[in-house]
């Protein structure tokens, strides 16, 4: 197997004195979609934030494209080609859609066709009709699309995607799944945190089950789907 694009070994993180992650390890390879599944509060969001340098964390190894991320400021991590779409989307609500995209704009690797607003509007047709609209005049689903599009404007090699299906209408979830497949087709690797794991199952190559801040299972999605006992235990009510 090739060296992973994103390599996390023994990651621990705390909020104040409350420890949330315990020696968590995972690998994301080029062009694959890895679903981080687990219940509410299991530590999915914290994992993504810790990788992005947004919460203080310790790790034995934390590399992206061979560069260590430990101690790097968030903007340097982003510039290495790692995009981040937060759970609460964090659209700049005072800015128009076009301006939101502008904040994310960053030249990509030479030789790859860069993401442009035009291409993104094809990917997310809902956004095309309202370029001049402000972020605070958008529905949750539209904000989610904009948040992903904004991150794509930085031409990342991989994206940390936190709960893209949360709180949005089923028809938009369907569109989101298509967009993720399109991104994957462009060679963008995706680390997906998902609670709606049926959605995750439909689009992911691999699954990584997180429980109480530690990894319970990592392997191909098919294996996880086949393992009924594990599925019921980790996700079932």
């Amino acid at each position: 197997m090739t060296t992973p694009l994103l390599d996390v070994a023994k990651l621990s993180a705390s909020y104040g004195r409350a420890q949330v992650l315990f020696d968590l390890s995972l690998q994301l390879h080029k062009g694959e979609v890895l679903a981080l599944v687990g219940r509410n509060g299991a530590g999915k969001t914290t994992t993504l934030k810790a990788i992005m340098g947004l919460v203080s964390a310790r790790a034995e190894r934390l590399t992206f494209s061979g560069f260590s991320l430990i101690g790097l400021p968030t903007y340097r991590i982003a510039r290495l080609g790692l995009g981040y779409v937060p759970e609460d989307r964090r659209i700049f609500t005072d800015l128009t859609i076009e301006e939101n995209l502008e904040v994310g704009r960053r030249a990509g690797r030479p030789g790859r066709s860069p993401w442009t607003p035009e291409r993104l509007f094809k990917l997310f047709p809902n956004l095309a009709g309202m370029k001049g609209r402000r972020g605070n005049e958008m529905s949750g689903g539209e904000q989610q699309m904009l948040s992903i599009a904004r991150t794509l404007m930085g031409n990342p090699d991989a994206i940390l995607l936190d709960e893209p299906s949360e709180g949005i209408a089923p028809v938009i979830v369907e569109m989101m799944a298509e967009a993720i497949c399109a991104m994957k087709a462009e060679g963008v690797a995706i680390l997906l945190s998902e609670q709606n794991w049926a959605f995750a199952a439909g689009i992911s190559d691999k699954a990584c089950v997180i429980e109480r801040g530690a990894i319970r299972f990592q392997g191909p999605m098919a294996d996880f789907l086949a393992n009924h006992a594990l599925r019921a235990e980790t996700l079932g009510v």
């Binding site: 947004l54 510039r79 700049f92 301006e99 502008e102 904040v103 960053r106 930085g154």
Partner: peptide, 18 residues
């Protein structure tokens, strides 16, 4: 545009590589 974005959410601006 970056200034206005940062006025609203500095952390997110950094996460976008600024």
């Amino acid at each position: 545009v970056l200034v206005r974005a940062a006025t609203q959410d500095r952390e997110m601006v950094a996460a976008l590589g600024v």
